[in-house]
């Protein structure tokens, strides 16, 4: 049997690395070729999506060569030592996915149950999360950032839990005092999101003071702006206690008119682009719930934006 001591090991390492790259390269060619033919996606998109996992294969392929040598020299018993940590890593990753799924389901279902409190906004948080994700995708957010954005959007109105039902469902204008009581929900939302470590950096997304566009402030995270625009768009395109839904074109125009003043212009364009590309229609005539016939026509324009954003009084 060959001894590996001294100069032979770097030689073996060099040949393993070369072989690993050759292996991964040929695998990538076959895999991408077949996927391209069957999925009919753009080759560059496909490559961008799979490149990271392909690169990750290289060190594991190198490891494979060394394990092979170890097996030849010391027998199968030693192999158990490498299988154990790999199985444990797999088991922990499976647990991670289970917890993540439970978290997801819990938040989604709880929000759904709690939204029943306000009959005009049922499904609102999920739609805001959907629009926020559209914008995130247009801006090429990574998976972790996307996840954080989605949860922040889902929970942006969580503070409404503390607002009495009769105020939330009051048709028509609110008095100054009622409006003040409703505004508290934003502070509560921020406080509740700040208690969750991974959402804390963008907890401001739940407060209108932090979501009004401030040009040239690179220190501000963009997520609060995204949530605000998604929130405003859904508010305009669905019927509320104080007014009926607006047509999609009016909503787009409203977003564009206020871009650079109230809204982050890039986010506005990203949302409109994403919705148009998908051919989706929202707003008057396309609403999920048609039962709120009694809502007043009042409040057209920006006054009713972003659900309770500004006082109409």
């Amino acid at each position: 049997m060959v001894s590996w001591v001294g100069a032979e090991v770097p030689g073996f390492l060099a040949s393993s690395v070369t072989s690993a790259i050759a292996y991964t390269g040929s695998y990538a060619l076959v895999f991408l070729g077949v996927s391209h033919m069957t999925a009919r996606g753009r080759f560059s998109d496909l490559f961008r999506a799979t490149a990271p996992s392909l690169v990750q294969q290289v060190p594991f392929a190198v490891l494979g060569f060394f394990i092979g040598r170890l097996y030849l020299e010391l027998g199968a018993g030693v192999m158990l030592l490498i299988v154990v940590p790999i199985l444990i890593a797999r088991e922990m990753f499976a647990s991670y996915l289970r917890v993540k799924e439970a978290h997801d389901e819990t938040v989604k279902m709880l929000i759904q149950a709690l939204e029943k409190k306000d009959r005009y906004t049922s499904g609102h948080s999920e739609r805001v999360a959907k629009y926020a994700q559209y914008i995130g995708e247009e801006m090429h957010f990574g998976p972790a950032r996307m996840e954080r954005l989605r949860f922040a959007a889902l929970m942006h109105d969580i503070g409404k839990l503390v607002v009495p039902n009769h105020l939330l469902n009051k048709p028509g204008k609110l008095t100054e005092d009622e409006f003040r009581r409703i505004r508290i929900h934003e502070q509560v939302s921020v406080q509740m999101l700040s208690n969750i470590e991974f959402l804390a950096p963008i907890a401001g997304a739940a407060h209108s003071d932090n979501t009004r566009f401030v040009p040239d402030d690179p220190k501000r995270p963009i997520e609060p702006y995204i949530v605000m625009i998604a929130d405003a768009y859904d508010a305009m395109t669905s019927t509320r206690a104080y007014r009926k839904a607006l047509p999609q074109e009016v909503a787009f125009q409203e977003l564009r008119d206020k871009a650079g003043v109230q809204f982050h212009p890039d986010c506005v364009e990203a949302l409109i682009r994403a919705i148009e590309r998908r051919g989706e229609r929202h707003g008057a005539g396309y609403e999920e719930h048609q039962e709120f016939e009694d809502a007043p026509e009042a409040g057209v324009g920006s006054a009713g934006l972003g659900d309770l954003l500004t006082s109409e009084a």
Partner: peptide
């Protein structure tokens, strides 16, 4: 394995903090 443990720990904490909140 360390990476998987880290992800699990972060996910567990996020879930718990969400419930507590």
């Amino acid at each position: 394995a360390w990476y998987a443990f880290e992800r699990l720990d972060a996910a567990t904490r996020a879930y718990r903090q969400t419930i507590e909140s």
